[in-house]
Every structure is written in structure tokens, then in C-alpha cells.
Design a protein around this nucleic acid. Structure first.
Lengths: 344, 344
DNA sequence: CTGAAAGCGCTAACAT
DNA sequence: ATGTTAGCGCTTTCAG
């Protein structure tokens, strides 16, 4: 007896009503008596009815699925966003499907967007960087779109980001408060808004502390461990090396720490290192990394919540959220050696 | 002029043929003249036609989408699998959609499976652990399923795993070759086949080396950094502490290294640590972690390839693949201090 | 090689 | 509150 997946028609038949009433009951629409609804839901649970979302979408309805478009990354950055977004979706009775983008994914934006729209009511996009074809493809989307972490690049969409500028200032203030004056900066991927804002924050904070950032103390990190390693190696070999390094993200901070060790220097005794993001690994390596925390899960959650509101037709014009960043004090920063000596 | 997404009907109209011929051309079926096919494909590209996969699925066709069901994890383990699987899918002209499972996702297996089947031709499942409801739900799937990393638990499905047993032996052999005799083991999540196999491999290898594993030198790590930290702290505080620690995965190895540092011990000078997995972070922390490499991306790739074969109707009975593991020598292991002293 | 008809499971729109 | 009709975009028959 090859029992097929139960359909709405079958459910209606068992309940002794029309398909339409069953549909309304399942979707919690009005136009059904409470009695009918309860009956339908009971039978649905009994026979294990699960709505076919492709059919729902095809017939012009909602699927209660949100799509998340994301680059796959080396660090935990994206995973945390996914967790936040996914939980928010589930809490609202939605499912979330993730479309992972690889480095080589170029020129296929149109197809991907079209694909995702076919079974989602809306899209959250974590975009790799400012990418013209993407922008164009996103514009053609006819489901709501919310952008994460790329505020500014897609001004036409609601967006969620953290306060990268202020976070960078926090990092500098922390290092200065410890007594550092020679502070180096390992920059991020300059194609990303976030990287820009952090660089700006660093420079502004330095000036505000009366520390005029030196060009020679800025190195390119591109948000990668390998580049962070190289950058720090270069910086620490300078005739007058920095006593502290602010890396634009945790991954490049890990690289900086490795470079210090490579040169026989201890962290934080010989050089302080502070990162940005607070990915889970930041607290799990040695030394635990002092860093600027982005509320990654909350960013994902906010993005989904805005999206769900848009799907429901609520368009608040203020859907451009910037969440605060925090200094997370751990063990990779300390007073500079000179200062410690002087204090004794 | 509200231009809607072009449909197959529109495409056929423009090509001056029937919808069916257009469909055949698009799907590369036989039954169309080469001339017609070329024309259709040209026009499709021109108007940016993208097949509606929900409609394809609904009408009994293939969507060329594979679904990947995965727990979200703290480490990069899963990300690497996703990369391998995703690339393999893309190379074969398929898309891949990921359904992330959170810890709290229980009791919803039936729904999730049903949902995923609605738009995929097959499923790759990275399961959290042996979970009865899951097993049941998977059994009801009417698309092919391939299981990753849980060989044995789902004997009815084709599976891909790495040689955890042999990998563990490799780790022990490496430590013994360095001169270690007091070797501790930090176990993994015992609900997982992989964890079991690694423990078995450890014990067998120890015996084969004439080293009778001591119960007091085994601690529980559950594949987490925090537990690994705790376990190592305990082990290193023993009156007769081990000179080397084999952690069942990289994450718990990171914990072990942190614990050693916490106690003022250096790695590898005072204690050697070897992990398992070779997640990207393993090479990015300090000291770079000596570990047993699982070919994670290749595992993802193999899983998808088996799945695609199944989708195409090719059922090789030997679809239970075990991929080899390798020792990756980095800097967290060295000769024990005693031996180094003796050599001088 | 090509096409016409029927229908996948569902919901909008329009009944009643 | 409930039911009927039509159709979403595609592919499976089944005919030519």
C-alpha cells in the first residue's frame, strides 16, 4: 500500500470539507470556524500533513521560508550570523534555507537570485563586497531583501550592521589607556564597508588621542590570517616596531599573534594584539584574544526580523540598523614593556 | 511595463515552437533537433530565462537541486564539508541549498525532511548523532539520501566517512616515535561513530606499542574547546602527568593547549598536543597544531557525487566510502623533555 | 522530432 | 463561514 505524502485534498476529504477551508485552517487565515480549524489541525497532525511549499509559492501564496545568501568564509563570522538569523526565523514559524556562495561564483547572480525567490518569501543577503552585477540582480528581486554588514553599499535596502567606526575607536582607546603610543593597524578587505569604517575609526581615534597615525605603521591584512601574519611580521621587524597592533578582524589578529611568536616575542608581554569581531575562536585560543565584539547573532536576528516585517507589508523607513560594538577584555593586550618597567 | 519573469511558455513563443520542445531543449533531453536546441538556448540566454524549479518539481520533474542537512557547529568542520559538497554540486550543474539545524531542533525531523524533498532531488545528511526520530524520518524520504561521517549508524544509506580508526593510530604512532610513553587521550562526543572509532584506534595502537592505555590518562572532551580545556587541566595536574595529549578533535586540542599555558607549561616543550580534523584554524593558531587530517572537502565532494549517481539511478552497492586520514606535522608536538635532556 | 492535453498541490478571486 | 473555478510553470503522458 504505497501511501503517498498526504495532500491538502486528502486532508480536506478526511475532514469532510472543501480544500479551501482546509487551506484556510492550515494557514491560520480567517474565514473558518474555530471548530473546523481545530478539526483540520487535529487530522493534519494525525496523518502528518506537511504543506507543499513549492505548490504554495507557485499558486501565489507564501512559503514561510526565508533565504539567506552568504559567502562561505574561513572564520566563524558567517556561522554566527546564520545562527542568529535561523533562530529568529524559526521563532516566527519560518524556515530558513541557506545558499552558500563560493569565491568562484561570479556572473551567476541573476540565476541565483531568481532561484532563491522561487521558494522564499524574502532574502537576507550577506554580500562578499561591492559587486556591480549583484547590485543589479538584487534590484530585480521581487521579494523583500535585507542586507547585512554592507551598509552604504546598498542604500536602497534595509540593512543591519554593527558600529564598526565606534568599535575601532574603542580599540584605540583601550590601547592608549594601557599606555601604548606606537600603535599599528592591520587593515581589512578594503572592498567592504566594514573595513573602511574600522580604518576610519582607527585614524580618527589616533588623532583624537594626539597620536597622528603613521603610514609606516599601517599594513594590509585583508581580513585573512595569512595576510595578518605577513603584515605583523613586517611591522614587528621595523627599526621602531609598534608596541601594540590593532587588527581589523580576529582572523588577522590570530595571524599577528603567530607572527609575534615566530619572532620570539610574547603576547601580550612584548606586543599587544587586539582584534575585531569576537568570533567564538577568539576566546578559545591562547592567549585569549582581546577584541571588539560585534553582536553577530543579534545582527542575524535583526535582519530576519526586519525582513519578516517587510514580508508582512510593514515598511518602516528607519530600517537601517547599526548595533553597538563592545570591548571584550581578554589576555592579548597589556601595558607596554617600557611602561611596566617604569612602574616598578 | 511590468515585465514579469520570463516563463517557458514565453520562451517557446519567442522561439516559435511548442512549450514541450523548449522544455526538452532546456533540459538537454533528446527529442529535439540540434538546431532547435541551439535556438532555444540562445533566446533563453537573451531574455534571461531561468527555469522555475518549484514548478519543475511539482510536475514531477527534477530540480537539479541537492539539499544539505547539517548541524551548525562551533568549528570549521561543517564549513569545509559544505564547500566540498557545494563545489561538486555546481560542477555537475546542480545547485545546493543548506538547511542548518540548531541544537533545539528536535521533533521536527519529519517536517524538515518533507520540506527539503519538496525542492531537492536528493539529500546529503550530516547528522548530529544517532537519533531515533531522525532515522525514522530519513527512512520515509522518497529522494535518495547520503550520510556523511556517521558510518554504521545508518547502515541502510550510502555513506562517506574518513578513516577515524586508522587516523587515531597514526596519532599514537607519531607520539610514540617521538619518544612519548605517557600519552593521554581526550575523548570526543561518544554518541558519534567518529568519536568511537578514534577511541578504539587510540586504545588499539597503544596496546600494539606495548603501552597499555591507563584509565587515568583518558578524559572526556566531547569535541568542545571548553571540555578539552577542563580535561587537559585535570590530566596535567596529575601527580604523574602525561608528556603528550591526543585530543579527539582540533577544537578540544585548542582547549588542551590553552590549559597547558594556563598552568605555565609550554607546547610542545613541556607537553605535546595532537588534534584531529585539520580544520583551517589548526594551521592559523600558535603553535600551529600537529593533527590528523580528515579530507573534509573531499568527503563533501564524494557524498554529492554518490548522491548524484543515485539520483541518476546508478546504485552501486559499494557506496560506503572511507577516505584516508593523514598525519599533518606542525609545531605542537615534539620529543618529551626527558628524552631531549638525555640526548644532549 | 514535435505537439496537445492533463495535472502536480496549492491559493487568489469570486462565488454562495 | 464555506465552496467553486481557474491557473501558477512546468513535465508527464500520449499522439502524431
Amino acid at each position: 500500500m504505497a501511501r503517498r505524502t498526504p495532500t491538502l485534498a486528502r486532508l480536506a476529504e478526511l475532514a469532510g470539507i472543501s480544500q479551501m477551508s482546509a487551506s484556510r485552517a492550515i494557514n491560520d487565515r480567517h474565514g473558518v470556524s474555530e471548530q473546523t480549524r481545530d478539526k483540520v489541525l487535529r487530522i493534519a497532525a494525525e496523518i502528518g500533513y506537511v504543506a507543499n511549499r513549492t505548490a504554495q509559492k507557485l499558486s501565489g501564496g507564501r512559503t514561510r521560508i526565508v533565504g539567506l545568501l552568504t559567502p562561505v568564509r574561513q572564520d566563524q563570522f558567517v556561522t554566527e550570523l546564520i545562527i542568529g538569523a535561523g533562530r529568529a526565523a524559526r521563532n516566527a514559524g519560518y524556515e530558513m534555507l541557506v545558499y552558500p556562495m563560493f569565491d568562484e561564483d561570479r556572473e551567476t547572480h541573476h540565476n541565483v537570485l531568481t532561484l532563491l525567490q522561487q521558494f522564499s518569501d524574502g532574502l537576507v543577503a550577506i554580500l562578499p563586497h561591492d559587486d556591480a552585477p549583484y547590485l543589479k540582480a538584487l534590484n530585480e528581486a521581487d521579494v523583500p531583501v535585507v542586507v547585512v554588514d554592507q551598509r552604504g553599499v546598498f542604500p536602497q535596502y534595509p540593512s543591519v550592521a554593527s558600529d564598526n567606526y565606534e568599535g575601532a575607536r574603542l580599540a584605540v582607546q583601550h590601547l592608549v589607556a594601557l599606555g601604548h603610543t606606537r600603535i599599528a593597524f592591520i587593515s581589512g578587505d578594503e572592498r567592504l564597508t566594514a573595513a573602511h569604517d574600522r580604518a576610519r575609526g582607527f585614524n580618527d581615534a589616533m588623532r583624537q588621542q594626539g597620536l597622528r597615525p603613521e603610514a609606516s605603521l599601517t599594513a594590509i591584512g585583508r581580513f585573512s590570517q595569512a595576510m595578518g601574519f605577513k603584515a605583523a611580521l613586517h611591522l614587528l621587524k621595523l627599526k621602531r616596531p609598534p608596541t601594540a597592533i590593532f587588527a581589523a578582524n580576529d582572523l588577522s589578529a590570530f595571524g599577528a599573534i603567530a607572527a609575534a611568536h615566530e619572532l620570539g616575542m610574547r603576547v601580550p608581554e612584548d606586543v599587544s594584539v587586539i582584534g575585531f569581531d569576537d568570533v567564538p575562536m577568539a576566546s578559545q585560543v591562547y592567549p585569549p584574544l582581546t577584541t571588539i565584539r560585534q553582536p553577530l547573532q543579534q545582527m542575524g536576528r535583526s535582519a530576519v526580523n526586519i525582513l519578516l516585517a517587510r514580508i508582512a507589508g510593514i515598511e518602516s523607513p528607519s530600517d537601517r540598523i547599526t548595533l553597538p560594538t563592545d570591548l571584550i577584555l581578554r589576555s592579548s593586550t597589556a601595558q607596554p614593556a617600557a611602561k611596566r618597567g617604569a612602574q616598578r
